[in-house]
Simulated scan of single mutants.
Amino acid sequence: MEHLLVMPVTPFEIMSSKVWAMGIVVLLATAGSLRIVVQGVLGVPVEGSVTLFLVGTALHLFATTSLGIFLGTLARSMPQFGLLMMLILLPLQILSGSTTPRESMPELVQFLMLAAPNTHFVILAQSILYRGAGFTLVWLQFIALILIGATFFAASLVRFRKAIGSMA
């Protein structure tokens, strides 16, 4: 934090660079893997728009990275952050519908998991890649990812500014 305080950048600029620096790398790797491995080597047909899927992936990266930054503002140390990530991200992934069908979960869990970005990403990825869905069918997932990401980004920004203010 001390290094960040002497740099001529705002908390928003720091957080934005954290969100998109790794996000762009993951997005490029996703696009390459989809084209080269899935479609090329394995020969699996993709039913829907790859571009639409990549836009959804970018929104998912924004939401999950914002969640990660928010958790980082809660943790007091890196080991605590690692434990917090395992306690939060593993259940989110397991309950998202990617490993177990959401329909087999209790209705309360299904409802609560609508607050998780992973759930919306699984829905949009399966809809686009397997069923060929267009934007008219997945726009709710796009809106949900934007809202979840913006909420965590804003909460992180508030907490980050408080942390910088208390260090100054």
Rank of each mutant, 00 (worst) to 15 (best):
K162S: 03
S16D: 03
R161W: 00
G23P: 05
R131C: 00
T57D: 10
V25H: 04
L95R: 02
Q141S: 14
M15F: 04
A150E: 07
F111A: 15
P11W: 03
G23M: 02
L147M: 03
L5F: 00
E103M: 13
T151V: 06
H60A: 05
L92M: 14
M1P: 08
L87G: 14
T65Y: 12
L90E: 04
I164Y: 02
L59I: 01
F70T: 06
M15H: 01
T10L: 05
H120D: 09
V46M: 13
M1F: 14
L27Q: 05
M86C: 11
L27N: 06
L140P: 10
V109L: 15
T57S: 13
M167N: 05
A155H: 00
W20G: 03
L137F: 10
S49D: 08
L42S: 06
S96I: 10
S66N: 02
L61T: 05
T119E: 12
V41F: 14
E2P: 00
V44T: 11
L71W: 08
Q39E: 15
R131D: 14
G72Q: 04
T119S: 15
I143A: 12
A21M: 05
E47R: 14
V19L: 04
L87W: 07
S98G: 13
G56D: 13
I69S: 08
A21W: 00
S66T: 09
F153M: 03
I146C: 11
R102M: 15
L74D: 05
M22T: 07
L147G: 00
H120G: 05
L54I: 07
H3E: 06
I69W: 04
A58R: 02
K162G: 00
A29L: 12
A115R: 11
L4E: 13
Q93N: 09
H120Y: 04
L92P: 07
Y130N: 12
F153S: 02
A29M: 10
L87T: 02
L27I: 03
I14H: 10
P91Q: 01
V41I: 15
G134L: 07
H3G: 07
F135R: 09
M7V: 08
T99F: 15
I36L: 13
S96F: 09
I94N: 13
V158F: 08
N118P: 07
F53S: 09
L27C: 01
V41S: 04
V50A: 14
F153A: 02
A31K: 03
P45V: 09
I88K: 01
F142P: 07
P79N: 04
T30S: 13
A154L: 06
Q126L: 10
V41W: 14
L42K: 06
T73M: 13
S17C: 01
V38K: 11
L27S: 08
F135A: 12
I148C: 07
